[in-house]
Amino acid sequence: MNLRRLYMVLAVLLVVWVLLPIFLIATLAFSDRPSVFAWPKGLLPQQFSLETISFFFGVEGVWRAIRNSLAVAAMTLVFSVLLGAPAGYALARYRFAGADAYRLLILMTRAFPLAILAIPLAVRFIQLGIYDTLLGVALVHTALALPFAVLVTSSLFLSIPKELEEAAWTLGCNRLQAFLRVVLPLALPGLAATAIFAFVISWNEVFAATLLTLRERTLPAFLLTSLNDSPLPFRFAGGFFLIVPALVFIFVIRRYLFTLWGIASR
């Protein structure tokens, strides 16, 4: 019985460890300027104020960076699902020569720090005329998200019995009809989770985004490049705003967390 209680105490401590820093940054983001600079600080917020947050959104370029981030993440989402899902389907449904080599290629991308590859790409992007464009950033982010999309959708399609598709064929469907009428409706929640995951990967990525842009900054790139010459309230509000979508997304896809990370990691 005491052991159970100890477990519970430890579990709650871990919850505090995870949530306290988020709570603190939220507190700072929603207080006025003097409280941000106050010392010593109490744990609880002094007074609720939108001053810091509105100051953040008032800074020139912030809105544009947010818009850019959303656009890049949306493109990444579309690209990785459109490129990844067919490959995942092929891996799940067919045994073909080269399947293992392909799987290896996908797994190999993990053994390399992909964001670093933004350096040679930046040089090439300048030549191609897509340097400092949202498309360029989205392409690199797709390279980051694609391996996940392939592995996740492959396990997703694997979990939909092949017999369902076969039954549809015997009942008069061609391949495409069977996919659209039977597989797609069943795969949709998982595909949505995959898409959201790709979105988060892009939303959070900073190295490549910073390297590949000058004016068309995404939010993390904008924050990073202005860190040194921006006041603390701006940074705190920015940090908090970066976290918010992540919290929502993780909540939405929590059911698929293990498919996404667990199975994707085999």
Binding site: L24, L223, G239, A246
Partner: peptide, 21 residues
């Protein structure tokens, strides 16, 4: 759910959070 929340948090955001500390 709570323990996995940090999964969605970027390294930049984490850096800023701990800067506050």
């Amino acid at each position: 759910y709570v323990w996995t929340i940090p999964l969605g948090i970027s390294d930049l955001a984490a850096g800023i959070v701990w800067l506050a500390i």
